[in-house]
Design a protein around this nucleic acid. Structure first.
Lengths: 331, 331
DNA sequence: CTGTTTGCTGCACAGCCGTGCAGACCGCGT
DNA sequence: ACGCGGTCTGCACGGCTGTGCAGCAAACAG
């Protein structure tokens, strides 16, 4: 099945193909009468300019790759959605590459994107190898990385360290003494940074921190980590969870399996503020990350990079704000 | 910033552009020696075939549009992820159009997709106007609709009616008598179908059904609907919720605001089986929909349609199976 | 009425690629 | 040495588009 081409429209309208092209080009010089004829013929045939061919000519495809692992989970789902929306509003075409963490898969995705001359790639997760950045650079493809301190690309970072320190200080100010932190073994850089910053801040204040890990940074990870924390050793009275999903898992174990009260026996703080954090069953105190704000920064970096390819790498920071709910009240 | 072109590779390798093209074309005839030279030059320059131009030539872009409203919410997040994964595996390039429900926005998205010669469009939500189908048809663009009985397109349907009838029968068989159903005012066809089928089945068995609606089919909608059900009138002892999110909201209101027990005072059944349904706080009995299975059917329909454009519209059904958890035990 | 300006139009080319076709070259048989 | 078959190669074209340039007609000024 063939799409309608400008040639066909030109024939029907009785003009040259150039006239058709000019009709659909902003600011080109066409007589109103011919323009009318062309538009009518186009309408009749259902013609739309072939943006692919236009892109080949102008050397810009308007495609932007969004690379994410498990884009359906937790905060990443919201970030992905916000990003695609922002890209569409900008006139770009978001290509969602839902890939595994494997290096090969990532490189295959990159080949696909470079093959289609994607104008830029935004990376939400996974740990791209050095060759990834090198190839992108050589093809002049701007790269924006979200949530990872990657010096070879523009990046948007959450204030993980600041927030985590804040969490530790607030726990301590509220009189909590037996601190713990829950992270995961398959930690993304963000998760690891939160965990480390919390531990460092607690140590700096003279407190020890028990550390527990789930397999992944999800609900099941929270279950597992909380069970190890409460099954033996000194039970914590305040736990900082590296993201909300971990916190939900932990909270459920604490309440349902150990019969303890949140926040009386154990205070909890999460990270991300996904909508579930406000659900009545949880009421999780957490650090709010605004996906729309992060997406806006990413798009801004993209714009800037495209206008000015040789500028030094930039880094945007979005500082999360704590939102107090039932799982830990303001001291 | 320019991408590397085949011309440049040809020059570096000291061959003609045709040789380069043939090197990267499956099944073309190139001498091993030249192939080697070309590959080496390509590697050195970081060359990748321009799939856009290739697409212009072959009249196929490999782009597939995925149109969804709020792709970050509930089951739709999982469906979107599964679909993009399936498309990538098939060698297609998923373009995620995250659009509002507005007719204009939908048509703008369609123009974008047709302009880029997307080979097909999969629609996950929204109610496209008739002109949408007409334009797609005229441009020979296959359309797959998920979860809506749209006669002008191939479609994948969940067995909403079967499942909802099953829910009613199971409630009744368990001795529940005061039935209710929770839907939403901004109902998608799926939600409405579930609601109606449940009511019809209950009526057929001689039972009345109280109906409550949230604004949207989400957690907040569940809160609002449950409050109206329990604030006045005869309190139900069994509620069928048109999706899991509604069920979570309803369950939280029933337990936390009215101090009732689920499942002792009120039994609940949801729909979708999102991961949260298995969380300890909820343990929701629900109908499992497998996003991967639905995605696979959608891709299958795509394949079939592309091979055989004139075949009559097809309809695939995926029947959900009930998963029993704490919120309502098997009678 | 004539010269000049203005506004459009069509031609041709550029930007990528795949591929039919004819010709070059190599190896081989006689 | 010469013809022949087969493999590869380069040329040129086709598939879409945007745009510089030259030419043409109309409008306008004198």
């Amino acid at each position: 099945m063939r799409f309608v081409s400008a040639e066909q429209v030109a024939q029907l309208a009785g003009v040259s193909r150039s006239a058709v092209s000019r009709t659909f080009t902003e600011g080109a010089s066409v007589a109103p009468a011919t323009r009318e004829k062309v538009l009518k013929a186009a309408e009749e045939l259902g013609y739309h300019v072939n943006d692919l061919a236009r892109g080949v000519l102008a050397n810009q495809s308007r495609l932007v790759g969004v690379v994410a692992t498990k884009p359906e989970i937790g905060f990443r789902a919201h970030l992905t959605a916000a990003l695609t929306k922002a890209l569409i509003r900008r006139g770009s075409i978001p290509v969602l590459i839902n890939t595994g963490e494997t290096e090969e898969e990532l490189l295959a995705a990159q080949k696909m994107l470079i093959g289609h001359r994607a104008e830029a790639t935004v990376i939400l997760s996974g740990s791209p190898p050095a060759s990834f950045f090198e190839l992108a650079q050589r093809n002049g493809q701007p790269l924006v990385v979200i949530g990872r301190a990657e010096p070879d690309a523009d990046r948007v970072l959450a204030g993980n360290a600041e927030a985590s320190r804040d969490a530790a200080d607030t726990f301590i100010a509220a009189g909590r003494r037996r601190l713990a932190v829950i992270g995961s073994r398959s930690a993304t850089p963000s998760i690891a940074e939160r965990e480390n910053a919390f531990v460092a801040a607690a140590h700096a204040a003279g407190f020890d921190v028990r550390i527990a890990h789930g397999r992944d940074s999800d609900y099941d990870g929270g279950l597992v980590a909380a069970r190890t924390l409460f099954a033996e050793g000194e039970r914590p009275d305040a736990i900082f969870c590296a993201n909300d999903l971990l916190a939900f898992g932990a909270m459920d174990v604490i309440r349902q399996e150990f019969g303890l009260s949140v926040p009386d026996d154990v205070a909890l703080i999460g990270f991300d503020d996904v909508p579930e954090a406000a659900w009545l069953s949880y009421g999780l105190t957490t650090f709010r990350q605004d996906p729309a704000a992060i997406a806006a920064r990413a798009v801004m970096l993209l714009d800037r990079r495209q206008q000015n390819p040789d500028e030094p790498r930039a880094c945007e920071r979005v500082i999360p704000q704590i939102v107090f709910r039932k799982s830990f009240s303001k001291p």
